[in-house]
Design a protein around this nucleic acid. Structure first.
Length: 486
RNA sequence: CGGGGCGUGGCUCAGCCUGGUAGAGCACCUGGUUCGGGACCAGGGGGUCGGAGGUUCAAAUCCUCUCGCCCCGACCA
């Protein structure tokens, strides 16, 4: 049989591989008739729902409540915070006509909700007793980006945005850090995607924030992906929207705020962290279907005996807490089914045919392993549970190793340039370059010359402490992450 | 917004240059044989060729206008 692979190998063209994986796994497709937008298909949405569940339970456990604010925001709101307008104005979609009439004041479709939420927080917050106010919103937002990429940057995307208000700057900082830790926990322990927690440089900070924290992940092509952000907003929006409370001494104070978010971009990160040339690879804790059993038979009597055993094993696995699916579809050969589930990223594929039935075995294949193995049908559930567990751990380890293999030190701007200049999303070759660099917009600008940027100033220094900035020569506390990014 | 590409069955595309009965592969439906890594054979359904206008006896094909999408760059979760 000729090569029927529908997935471009990573080494040939990483960007095309990424799109092929999405298509073959039926995660999403272009919305075609709506520029820059995408349709998230059931399998992709099921993974998003798993992510939502993991995140949402952690938000609740840290005291947050969900709420919902309008999609449309009065234009004037966006303009109230100077940096915020400047940051978002170019990418706003605006509603100017509604009900057949030109609106007196246009609405913008929310690119993020700090402003509309700020308006209501001003009404809700009067006293120190009203604080902290801890709210999260699951929503869609629209940003009119010039260049879109499936999951990574679409015109409309799904996300959650947390918006909190606190009585003190310190509480707000603790909140921003706490949620960053929640994001890192989900990224690493659920998505098996290692991240660096850090602070955004001045140049990369969120429009309107005093400080932005982030988690940065490395994709298989070495490019960086900002996987989540958590911002200290200081009193910027509080001042713009007059969010004031009376403190215990009876004085009026502006509230201290945070906002934090992760989006469907995480699915892009997930794909580019683990998947291979055969298709999607999902970490077991995130896989909507963790195991599939494929029955194999020819004659009718084989069929009934095999299917009976498959049903029994399915029940046992389910009882052990495994999300299992028996693929008893008629009219597809087993080979066809193997490919199907492999491309869809199912962590464990089990096959059972007359030969296995005769000796009480099943054939078993871990998605990220090269070889099949044969195991006894008796006690299969325990083996699957253990395997899923191991796979989760090993996927994170593998991703960590790849990141560390592709992280290098640099001592001069020319060295950074030489390492990163030729890296692209298509051809790969990206690295995390650790270098000493002053947190100054002028320094960031020099990296732009070769399309790299400061991804973050890590919160923890795993290198060699202070050193001289590769541009200004001034001493800075520790190395920053420089990379090309999505 | 600059540069490039493309709109033809569900999908990927050929046909266009040189106008003359709308095609292929995949997918789909039916029947049979198959079934341990993308099965095979036979039969079958499905397209106002992105849209409008023009030239012509005749337009998927030539001309004009128009709409949309994709890719590359500048901007960005």
């Amino acid at each position: 049989m000729a090569d029927k692979s529908k997935i471009t190998p990573r080494a040939e063209n990483f960007a095309r591989w990424y799109l092929d994986v999405i298509q073959q796994a039926e995660l999403a497709e272009s919305a075609e008739v709506v520029k820059g937008c995408m349709v998230i298909r059931p399998h992709g949405y099921a993974i998003w729902e798993r992510l939502q569940a993991e995140l949402d339970s952690r938000f609740k456990a840290t005291g947050h409540q969900n709420a919902y604010f309008p999609l449309l925001i009065p234009m004037s709101f966006i303009k109230k915070e100077a940096e915020h307008v400047e940051g978002f104005a170019p990418e706003l979609a605006v509603v100017t006509i509604a009900g057949g009439e030109t609106l007196e004041e246009p609405y913008v479709i929310r690119p993020t909700s700090e402003t509309i939420i700020g308006y209501f927080y001003a009404k809700w917050i009067k006293s120190w007793r009203d604080l902290p106010l801890l709210i999260n919103q699951w929503a869609n937002v629209v940003r009119w980006e010039l260049r879109t990429r499936m999951f990574l940057r679409t015109t409309e995307f799904l996300w959650q945005e947390g918006h909190t208000a606190h009585a003190t700057q310190q509480e707000a900082e603790e909140e921003a850090r706490r949620m960053l830790d929640v994001y890192a926990d989900v990224a690493e322990n659920i998505m098996a995607m290692p991240v660096i927690r850090g602070i955004k440089s001045q140049a990369e900070r969120f429009a309107g924030a005093t400080r932005s924290f982030c988690i940065e992940a490395m994709m298989q092509n070495g490019l960086a992906l900002q996987a989540g952000t958590s911002h200290e907003l200081g009193q910027n929006f509080a001042k713009a929207f007059e969010i004031r409370f009376q403190n215990k001494s009876g004085e009026l104070e502006f509230a201290w705020q945070t906002s934090w978010g992760v989006s469907t971009r995480l699915l892009g990160g997930l794909i580019m962290s683990h998947s291979d040339d055969r298709g999607l690879v999902l970490p077991p804790k995130l896989a909507p279907v963790q195991a599939v059993i494929i029955p194999i038979y020819r004659k009718d009597e084989e069929r009934s005996a095999v299917l009976e055993k498959v049903q029994q094993l399915t029940s046992e696995l389910r009882a052990a807490g495994v999300a299992v699916n028996a693929d008893d579809r008629e009219g597809y050969t087993p080979g066809n089914k193997f490919f199907h589930w492999e491309q869809h990223g199912v962590p464990v594929i089990i096959e059972l045919g007359p030969r296995d039935l005769a000796v009480g075995n099943v054939v078993f294949r871990r998605r990220d392993a090269a070889e099949k193995q044969t195991v006894p049908a008796e006690g299969l559930a325990a083996v699957v549970v253990r395997t899923l567990d191991q796979m989760q751990t090993e996927m994170l380890e593998a991703a960590r190793k790849r990141r560390s293999d592709n992280t290098v030190l640099a001592g001069s701007l020319e060295e950074v340039r030489a390492i990163l200049e030729s890296a692209t999303a298509e051809k790969g070759g990206g690295k995390f370059v650790m270098a000493h660099l002053k947190d100054d917009k002028a320094c960031d600008a020099r990296l732009k010359e070769f399309k790299a940027s400061v991804r973050c100033i890590p919160l923890e220094d795993h290198y060699d402490g202070p050193g001289k900035c590769i541009i200004t020569g001034e001493t800075v506390p520790h190395r920053v992450v420089i990379a090309k990014s999505y």
